[in-house]
Design a protein around this nucleic acid. Structure first.
Lengths: 342, 342
DNA sequence: GGTCGATGTGGTCTCGAGGCCATATCCGAG
DNA sequence: CTCGGATATGGCCTCGAGACCACATCGACC
């Protein structure tokens, strides 16, 4: 790899002049500039980013950590992030938290990035203190409920979204509604599970043990939703609806129901949350909650830029609203068996 | 941020000694080592990666460029890449090619990465010469057919896979089979489209203009498959099968058929390629071609490591085999209308 | 004709960590 | 007692690019 020095020698000028040509700063005679540009072309010279970043103490790159690359919910957020980052002259790279979490956090703290975005901070919090990270490097979080940390974040109220889902089902005549979610739902205030519990209680409905179906935290995949529902259906069919904490689990659940001989929605209604693309291109289409994913991505980047440019961490906390979308996977009064005493 | 010098001062030693402690190299007295470690803790010192990489001329990081983050086909390859990379002490970051391609390639050439993986090199080739890149930095490609470049690559023969799909459908009695794929299929030797054309010709079946449905290159999403099929169904229903060039297009197509009142598979059979997770968790489940995605990811990283460690670019080209998986979306003899003269 | 400002170019220190080389001390063998 | 190797530590140059400062030169204007 050619260096600035090589270019300087070939063009018969000093390294400083090469820098001036590259960065278009200071005075350079037109004729000299041409000579330097030619030398750059001839040597195929590309400035070394490591060196530049070391000197400048900025690298114009963000990192984004996602819990799982296979959940399409994150994809659109990522596209929003990319969009705004590129517009502002930053690139960003994506880290999948699947396996070795610690490895990646190290990278971040080692100064490889100017800012850091976490989508869903729960897994992270178990490894490192988010507040600690955010004191060292501009940070922005997305989460599914308001958080109390002093870290800038964007959130949506998914407890509320879940309440709406449950209430809609209750209003449609459902009584025995299964909750399909992830284990950490139990530990969190303001979680989707809390919304479920409250709505059931408000309607005077009992939540039996079987009705809470939780899968391990990081495994919110299609397959896990499928397997959990399959085993549930093998044990009991005494339910008429499933509220899943996200669309992937819901999609898996629907397939499990079909294979178990239960029709959706005529036997069982199913709702998800996220409104990923597949939700309206599957059969049956999925009733779910729309989240403004692209806008969330845009906003997260703006939060980082704000911290970088203003040198202060405004403790910002921005809420986005959500909207329930009714589709084919839910239907009215499917709980006829109970009404007719069968 | 504390530097090595700060640590050295606090511990009352020289920067060299601090380096020796950190890298566990050379001789350091036990007592001094303790003092240095304490200083590191007290100052919360983390070595600066930029500086280290600049000096070492390696950064132990790979970049992986994917055409589209929303295609789950790539997710499992990415997980395979991650697995092998971490095992060997490398991290890697993911770039979504969606928008500003050039930006990312620049980063790579600027020495931010020790190696580079392209999943699907076609988009790339339109921006930069892959051979040129691979001369400057260790590179590995995944592609869907054998390529002639002098760049290490892993490939599967998807022309063959498509031939198998088409032939299976023909054997099941189908005659009017639609090809749903991407535009660049037309320009490539050994493409899936070639497989379709050949199989149809071999069986003496004519490919009418309407039977080739191509969507823009980078947009191989659910929605595009849906829309294209929807408009097709609005124009003609004179077909009994669709072979899609990947699962996403197939999933979109199936929904479009359902909405157009055509049942799958009893009216129309559909096949995909890739065997993404949703293929066996949707209704109907999708007949498709399994590709060993995780192994491909593992191998791509091994190819990079080989180049780095051996300092020579063995012109390696490794083929993985694929396997057709029959599921619910295809069925025998659906073309009864023709047989009975209707 | 001297001064000042615009134009143009090079020298050199800097960012932070790696690591070679010089140096110093100590201990045991001869 | 001396020499050599093991142990231990510091000095300083290096990686490649940024940028300040010094130093030219030139033209214009008083």
């Amino acid at each position: 790899m050619a260096t600035r020095m090589d270019v300087a020698k070939l063009a018969g000028v000093s390294p400083s002049t090469v820098s001036r040509v590259i960065n278009d700063s200071g005075y350079v005679a037109a004729e000299v500039r041409e000579r330097v540009l030619k030398a750059i072309r001839d040597l195929d010279y590309i400035p070394n980013r490591m060196a530049r970043s070391l000197k400048m103490k900025e690298c114009r790159q963000f990192a984004c950590v996602i819990p799982s690359i296979s959940n399409p919910f994150y994809h659109e957020i990522v596209m929003g992030i990319e969009e705004t980052a590129l517009q502002n002259g930053y690139t960003f790279s994506l880290y999948n938290m699947g396996s070795e979490k610690r490895e990646y956090f190290k990278l971040v703290l080692e100064g490889f990035y100017d800012g850091l975005i976490f989508l869903s901070p729960f897994e992270v919090a178990q490894v490192l203190s988010l507040e600690e990270i955010s004191r060292k490097i501009p940070t922005a979080l997305y989460c599914d409920h308001r958080i109390s940390y002093v870290v800038p974040h964007v959130y949506v109220n998914l407890k509320l979204a879940m309440k709406r889902n449950v209430e809609a089902l209750i209003q449609q005549g459902h009584r025995r509604i299964i909750y399909l979610g992830q284990e950490w739902d139990l530990q969190l205030e303001g979680s989707r599970y809390q919304g479920y519990i409250e709505s059931m209680a408000d309607a005077g409905l009992e939540v039996l043990p079987d009705m809470t179906q939780l899968v391990p935290n990081l495994l919110d995949t299609l397959m896990v939703g499928y397997e959990r529902t399959k085993s549930l259906a093998a044990v009991t069919r005494d339910f008429t609806a499933i509220v899943a904490s996200n669309d992937l689990l819901a999609v898996g659940a629907i397939r499990a129901l079909v294979e178990s001989g239960m029709r959706v929605p005529s036997d069982v209604s199913v709702t998800g949350i996220d409104d990923v693309e597949i939700a309206r291109l599957m059969t049956p289409t999925l009733t779910t909650t729309r989240i403004p994913k692209r806008e969330i991505g845009n906003t997260l980047v703006m939060m980082l830029l704000d911290q970088i440019r203003n040198e202060h961490t405004a403790n910002s906390s921005i809420e986005f609203s959500t909207e329930i979308i009714f589709r084919e996977s839910t239907s009215y009064h499917p709980d006829k068996r109970e009404d007719t005493g069968v």
